[in-house]
Every structure is written in C-alpha cells, then in structure tokens.
Design a protein around this nucleic acid. Structure first.
Length: 309
DNA sequence: ATATGGCCCTGGTTGC
DNA sequence: TGCAACCAGGGCCATA
C-alpha cells in the first residue's frame, strides 16, 4: 500500500528514468475504473508530449508535460537507453542536477497517477512481458515503456491540460514540512479519533494506515484519543514522530507489505522495522506487552496498550 | 460543516 | 486437500 514514502521513491525513480523522454504512443485498457479522464482524452493529450519532470504531491505522482512540438532539453539517446536505464549514474549524465530541479520549459499539461492500494508505475524495456492488470502503456521515444499496473483498480489516472484548467494540488498539508502551529490547528476542536484524522487527506496529505499507526506508537498516543483533546505537547510529539518515520522510510526507499515495486519493476522490499503495524499479538518492542488490534474508521489499527495512552 | 459507513476490486489467507 | 468465504484498505459518495 503505497503511502508518502513509497510514492516519493517511485516519483524520484521515474523522474530519473524518463525525464526528457518523449511519449510516442499511449495505450489504455478498456476498464472504466482507473480513469478520472476518459482514456481517449488521456491518449490524445499524452502523445507527442515531453516529460519535463516527475514529482510527488501527497500520494499522487504528477508527471509534468511539455509542448508537443518542442525539443526536449535532454534528448534521450535511444542507443544508450538501456545502459542508462540500468545504471543510475549513467542516467545522470544528461541531467547535471540529477534531482528534482527546475523545469527547462513551462509545463503545458500534467498526467496524474494515484497508485491506490496495489498500483505500480514501471519503466521497462519494450520486450518485458506485459503483466496482468496493465491499464496503461506509454511508449517512449527512447524505446522504453512507462506502464501502469493495478490489479485491484483502486488507482486513478488523470490528465490535465494546463492551458484550459488549473494544475493538480493536494488537498491537505504536507506532513514533512508543516510547522508546529499549523499542525496543532489542523486538529483543534475536532471530535474524530486521532487515527482517523491522520488518515483524512484533506487535513494531512500522504499519510496512510502504516505510518498513522507507526507515528502514533512513536508518539505514545492511543489511536482512539479524540483529535481535539490532545495536548499541545502530544501534538508536537506526533508531528515530529510522523515526520521522522516518513523521512526514515524515504531513506530506506519506501516500505510496504506486499505491493510496492519500484520504478524499475524490481521489488523494493525494504520493509521498515514496523513497531506495531501488523504485529498483532506480538510483543511490543519497547515493553513486551502484546500488540493489540482494533478497528478505527474501518481500518485495521495496531497499538501497544501500555506504551500508548 | 463534520463525521461515519458502504462500496469498489482482486489476491492472499483462513476455515471448514 | 480443496474450495469458498473472508479480509485487506484509499478515496469517493451518500447519509446522519
């Protein structure tokens, strides 16, 4: 289940691999489920456009696209495509910044990918077999393909023409950068459980079930505390715990239980050392009390009854 | 306005 | 052993 750290890792990986490449052809499956924009409209908007960059907003991957007729700032050498594809250092040769630097031209459109529960965004060689539940295939000028695979179809694909509308922006605050004052204000006088509040994407964006449970454990707060009843000190512990666990997971390259696959299609199974998540009945790593599992906001919720008050 | 619960989906796990 | 029922949950929508 991709949350902020997994999506960040995937966005960075895709950025490094496809920046400067051109979308030659776009194919979409006939399932209606994953498409916020009709597939035909997405294909028409994507074909011919240049990928200026890829970044994360909340749990969304935003692909910034340049104009149809333009020349890519860093044209991809198709003969070297595979070599670059397999070696990150080589891939950086054409991109001195090597990261999420400024665009070289103004984005005209965006392709927005939400991975849902089981979505994967892969950069592959064209001869890699098509996985089951592949819903999108973008053939790139370099010869490689950008594929979207999603068995459960909880993911979403959207195309935005920036000349006709506004760009994508996440609904909630970024947990990595939000300050103490703004964080406390999010929960003030709210009656819902703090666990439910952390999952609410209109308050904070990017936090899912794993990091909600883990940050509450690290902050020593029970998931069924009412959000508005937390003290200022508890909120500050929660903010720093959340930021810390997210940053840690990003450093590890994202963590997940079963569905995370990195942009290369290589299983990036960097399972974070979860303290409570899916450790029901196992001893708490801090005090050895068995971890308890309850249901909050329809989600499995794990906590230590002794460490969390 | 705020909060809750049902629904969409398939694959892996559980239980008989 | 085999098969069916069950469970997982992010986001959206209807409802209270």
């Amino acid at each position: 289940m991709p949350e902020l750290p997994e999506v960040e890792t995937i966005a960075r990986g895709v950025h490094e691999r496809v920046r400067g490449d051109r979308i030659a052809e776009a194919w979409f499956s006939s399932f209606p489920q994953p498409f916020k924009t009709p597939p035909g409209q997405q294909a028409a908007g994507l074909e011919g456009r240049v990928v200026l960059g890829v970044h994360r907003e909340g749990k969304h991957i935003v692909v910034e696209l340049g104009n149809v007729g333009g020349v890519p700032s860093h044209p991809f050498d198709s003969a070297q495509g595979r070599l670059r594809h397999k070696n990150k250092d080589v891939a950086r040769v054409g991109h001195p910044d090597g990261g999420l630097g400024e665009f070289d031209s103004q984005p005209e459109a965006q392709w927005i990918v939400h991975l849902g529960m089981t979505g994967r965004l892969l950069v592959t060689a064209p001869d890699v077999p098509i996985a089951a539940h592949t819903h999108a295939r973008l053939t790139l000028a370099s010869g490689r393909e950008l594929r979207f695979v999603d068995p459960r179809r909880f993911g979403r694909l959207e195309f935005r023409d920036l000349r006709r509308g506004v760009g994508f922006s996440a609904t909630g605050a970024e947990p990595l950068t939000i300050g103490a004052e703004a964080f406390a204000a999010l929960f003030r006088s709210r009656k819902l459980y703090i666990k439910a509040a952390l999952l609410n994407q209109t308050l904070l964006t990017g936090v899912g079930n794993i990091y909600a449970d883990e940050s509450l454990f690290r902050a020593g707060i029970r998931p069924r505390r009412r959000a508005g009843r937390l003290t200022r000190a508890e909120l500050e512990r929660l903010r720093t715990s959340l930021r810390g666990v997210l940053q840690h997971a990003i450093r590890l390259g994202g963590s997940s239980v079963s569905d995370y696959v990195d942009a290369d299609g290589v299983r990036g199974f960097f399972q974070l050392e979860h303290h409570v998540y899916q450790r029901t009945g196992l001893p708490c790593l801090r005090c050895a009390t068995p971890i308890r599992r309850i249901l909050v906001a329809g989600r499995g919720t794990h906590y230590c009854p002794k460490c969390q008050r």
